[in-house]
Design a protein around this nucleic acid. Structure first.
Lengths: 138, 138
DNA sequence: CTTGACTCCGTAGTACGGTACGGACTCTAT
DNA sequence: ATAGAGTCCGTACCGTACTACGGAGTCAAG
């Protein structure tokens, strides 16, 4: 099976070599096999994992949350109900993110549209869209 | 018109007092009027602005990006085309985020569903869903 | 008119997520 | 055989986004 050096992995995944070593230290990627020289040997699937980490980070997940996401799987050690439960929780937080983003998008589209209209509009139209929840608090 | 102290603002927006001062220093919120004593006096709309910042951060925007979002408006100083252009760019990055999140959601739903099935499934099903773009690079 | 909570300011420290350095070793190509 | 690029490791440093501290002044309730 084809294997990659740390540099090849870093390149394909779009991060630096040092970042790979950092993720390894943090437990986000498994310690790979080594050649006799000590060089790390990665399977090609590792590229996926690193890319996933990168994407998830861009979406506002912390490395801790990402490692929780990555460790979610059907696993004889954990009950089905547990896996379901954890997945549900993550799905909900993802849905909330999607909704906030959709609201921002609407606000920006409204802004772009209002442009052709008349004079200066609201002070900052993007603010108009994003409250709703938690107005109860306070 | 009702005004708020920095503590009231922080409370209603769900952040700490020091965070408000920090955002002021960073130019994310305007310097407010002061009482003769020097105490800051905020209009109630400030709550919205701070909440927006908080939400946007949770969605993976940096403070720099957030300040760009906040300064987008129909403004006699800027041409209509410019505003449109900038809004378009932001909309695109938001759409990309939404798509990644939707893919993650699908992956997690598949995971939760596969649970009832038979034995352990793929090593890490969430990875199956999230590539597509950029496979060209490398 | 005091007392306790709040605010002022500047500066220092923290947590997270990398990023750089440097001296030694290894690999590949010529 | 050797040069040049890549890798090893530990440790130190960096930018971002807060968070805490401390000493002085302010405010509102009793």
């Amino acid at each position: 099976m084809e294997t990659l050096t740390i540099g090849e992995l870093a390149n394909r995944a779009g991060v630096g070599v040092e970042t790979i070593r950092f993720y390894e230290r943090e437990g986000l990627i498994a310690e790979p096999k080594r050649r006799p020289s000590g060089y790390r040997q990665y399977p090609t699937e590792a590229v996926r994992r690193v890319r996933f980490i990168r994407h998830a980070k861009e979406l506002g997940f912390t490395l801790k949350e990402i490692s929780e996401l990555l460790s979610l799987r059907v696993d004889p050690e954990r009950t089905c109900a547990d896996v379901r439960q954890r997945a549900r929780t993550k799905i909900e937080s993802i849905e909330a993110k999607i909704e906030s983003l959709a609201a921002m998008k609407v606000a920006l589209e409204r802004l772009a549209a209002s442009c052709n209209g008349s004079g200066p509009t609201s002070e900052c139209p993007i603010l108009e869209e994003l409250d709703r929840e938690e107005d109860a608090r306070a």
